[in-house]
Simulated scan of single mutants.
Amino acid sequence: MSPSSPEPTSAISRIAELPAVAATAVAIAHERAVESARGDRLFADPLAAGFLAAATPPGATAPLPLGEQVPLMHGYVALRTRCFDDELLAAARGTGVRQLVLLAAGLDTRAFRLAWPRGTRLFELDVPTLLAVKEPLLRAAGAVAACDRTTLATDLAGTGWPAALTAAGFDASVPTAWLAEGLLMYLAPDENDRLLETVGALSAPGSVLLAEHVPAAGTRPPESDADGHVLDAGGASWRSTLDDPLAWLDAHGWAAEAIDARALATAVDRPLPAVLDRAAVGDACAWLLRARRRAVS
């Protein structure tokens, strides 16, 4: 990726102007770049370093990774990424889901770095300002998707995106794997309810929903005062919490379960991040969630 080429230069000039919530995507890409550089990496994301470089002014040093700025988060993004990688691939390979929707995709690169089965269609939804930054950088890097990738510039807090998604080729009659990663806590409770109702209406039986959320106690976990808001990056404060996500998902027609983060960490030979460790943070423990759409009786 050459900073002198027109498209990346334009994108670099805009990346610092992203709204605070969209700008958290840069912090997550930074974590993926750090993980990708490890010899024992949980995944390889060769595009993440380019996103980080584009977000770092010439001559400046990139800020510390999120996990070093907020100790409770150390290792969290890498484990969460691997968790949802595995879950999405399991849906595509194991249950034959060939349609995936990444809600608030940010600088996600799963369309490029994962080995998708033939016929997989992947939709990335996010705000226009972020896609205006991301797409030129991908083109400059020569990135080639490993699936049929469609981007949709939209506001998930609004009401127009389902029609736009359908117009882009989404088929509500077949099972879909949905990913809400780093999203729900940035929406207000009523917006989350509306989002889940909409996703449910678009989901055929057998569809899968993967998500994360945080409990009320997670807004100020133990020993985090010095860090401020745990996931606050550049002023992007949480707007909602959820103390019983399984009941919430059940009420919206999803059979849900909490993913066993400890078992996941053990399986990949990594320490359990404190933010996922109930023994460390008690009721402030974050949720990783897996849900399947129930058939309508």
Rank of each mutant, 00 (worst) to 15 (best):
L102E: 13
L289W: 06
I28K: 03
D190G: 01
T95V: 08
A23C: 08
T150W: 00
A226T: 09
P273I: 08
A172M: 04
R293D: 02
L156W: 09
A255G: 06
L196N: 02
G67E: 05
Y186L: 00
E223R: 14
V208G: 04
A55S: 11
V133M: 10
D283P: 08
L102V: 12
V21K: 09
E87F: 06
L179G: 02
R98A: 12
L64A: 15
H213L: 06
S297D: 15
M73Q: 09
A105C: 10
A20K: 11
D244L: 10
E212K: 03
G94T: 06
G94M: 05
A177I: 08
A62D: 03
P245V: 12
P205L: 08
D269V: 02
S224D: 10
I259D: 00
T109M: 10
E124I: 07
L179Q: 01
P46W: 14
Q99V: 09
T9M: 12
S237V: 12
G169M: 08
E31M: 07
S203P: 01
P271R: 01
R149W: 09
T61P: 00
M73G: 01
A146G: 14
P8V: 06
V26K: 03
A265T: 09
A22R: 04
D225H: 11
H229E: 15
R290N: 02
V97R: 12
P58A: 14
T154Y: 05
V144L: 13
G200Q: 01
A279G: 15
L249D: 07
A167V: 05
A233S: 11
T56L: 06
L231G: 02
D40C: 11
V127Q: 15
A16E: 14
W116K: 02
R262I: 00
F51E: 05
G106I: 10
T81P: 04
S297R: 15
I259M: 02
G158K: 04
F84R: 05
R14S: 14
L249I: 12
A167C: 04
W238G: 09
R14I: 04
A48W: 05
R80G: 02
S240Y: 13
A27L: 01
A177K: 07
L276N: 02
R149G: 05
A48D: 04
A167I: 03
L18E: 06
A33D: 05
V70T: 12
S2Y: 01
G282I: 11
L289M: 00
R270C: 00
A263T: 14
D225E: 15
A226Q: 13
V208M: 10
L276E: 03
S13E: 15
A54C: 10
A62K: 03
F84K: 03
E257P: 02
